[in-house]
Amino acid sequence: MISNEGSLIDRRQTQIDAVDMHTVGIGGDSLVRLSRSGQLSVGPLRIQPLAMAQGIPDPASWIGEENRSRWIINVNSNERDQSAALDPVVAHLLREKGATPADMIARLGMSDFGLDRRLEELAFNNKISAVGFTPTDALHVLGKSQLGDAAASIAGARILADLRGETIEAFCSAVLEATHRKIADAILAYTFSKQTGKSIKAFSTDDQGILLFSCNFKLDVPIVGVGAAARHLLPKVANRLHTEAIFPSHFEVGNALGAIMIALNDERQK
């Protein structure tokens, strides 16, 4: 679909004809986080899966709830340039193998919000990256993906599952279920808004006390999957929405190909 009002970038409408696009922070590389009560959430923060990370400590030695869900590492391999590349207050904590936000808060005496803002800026400028448990790791634990180091995924899942008092299989199934639900909800909210001009929140039956009725929606168009995790995530999303998932040829590398083409186009313009 084409939007005459243009794409919405942050809070600004471009007012230039463009593909009608709506993005949601959920996918194979979304951060899985546990609250202190054991409540599970997926996304919107994007990180590197444990299965794909290299040179980090054993996840069992650091992963946990809240601010122990991520391992922050310095992406600048040149130690002499590290102080210039990173915020100097953070640089010394990442000089060796990295740290969790919880470690950094304790050492720096900062608030959660203050540290998150600082880490967000450093990540945006490609000075740091983060590693943690993701839906991709859940797929590795359950034997549905073999792209990386399943042992790292299992080590992280074991700790997080223990915090919730369940088996690693049950924990990983809950991660994937939460991912399926969030993707399906995003698609449904977008399509409902496009067709009716209204928010689907009016149909929410959450936290309303006694349930008097329920709604069931059917998507009348297929879902097209692109990306390595799509094959494992979208079929159940399609089932939720009573439609089908379509996977084009070479869908696994579609995102990578798009990124390369953008980079090549940028080089030509230079």
Rank of each mutant, 00 (worst) to 15 (best):
M1C: 07
S7H: 01
D10G: 09
Q13S: 09
Q15A: 10
I16L: 13
I16H: 13
D17H: 09
V24A: 10
G27F: 09
G28S: 11
D29C: 12
L31F: 06
V32F: 04
S35T: 13
Q39A: 15
I47N: 02
Q48M: 15
Q48W: 00
P49M: 05
L50M: 11
G55M: 10
P59Y: 08
R70C: 11
I72Y: 02
V75R: 14
N78P: 02
A84C: 03
L86E: 06
D87W: 00
P88R: 08
H92F: 04
H92V: 08
H92D: 12
L93A: 01
L94K: 04
R95A: 14
K97D: 15
T100F: 02
L108S: 10
S111D: 12
G114H: 07
L119C: 05
A123I: 10
F124N: 08
F124D: 06
K127R: 15
S129H: 05
V131H: 02
T134K: 00
P135K: 03
D137Y: 05
D137R: 01
A138E: 10
L147M: 10
A150I: 04
A150S: 15
A151H: 10
A152F: 11
I159Q: 03
D162C: 01
A170F: 00
F171I: 02
V175N: 06
L176S: 03
T179S: 12
H180K: 08
R181V: 03
A184Y: 11
Q195W: 05
I200H: 07
L211C: 05
F213P: 00
N216E: 13
F217V: 00
K218N: 11
D220K: 15
I223T: 04
G225E: 08
R231Q: 15
H232G: 02
P235D: 09
R240V: 01
H242P: 00
A245W: 01
I246K: 11
H250N: 13
V253R: 12
G258F: 08
I262P: 00
I262Q: 14
A263C: 13
A263N: 12
